[in-house]
Amino acid sequence: MVRELQTSGASNAQDGASVKITFKLYASLTPLLPGTGTDHATGVEVDPGTSVLDVIDQFKVPRESAHLVLLNGVFIAPEERHKPLLQDGDTLAIWPPVAGG
């Protein structure tokens, strides 16, 4: 279960039974994130055991567009994305295919 954090930070989950993460979407994915400022981030509360893919699906990010997936700045390979990796305080940031130099 993935819930957007209210500004009050109120949680439906029982104490200790949920984790709060920061979720960021960039480039063409930014519009999928409700009500963000220039930091492209929103607070999200998830149940323990939630995977990266759960969050991706919840926010309707097309899986093929979730190209660069960084958990606390570290790349999460496609084969890792279904695992229950998310922990309290994590930052999950996702980009569509981008390049530069």
Binding site: A27, H40, G73, V98, A99
Partner: peptide
Amino acid sequence: ENAMTGEGLGALGTQALMNVINEVG
């Protein structure tokens, strides 16, 4: 047909990297 050269670079240019490189430290 490539997502980077077909779309990504045209949209944000090389500047798409600013947030990426900051996030990876």
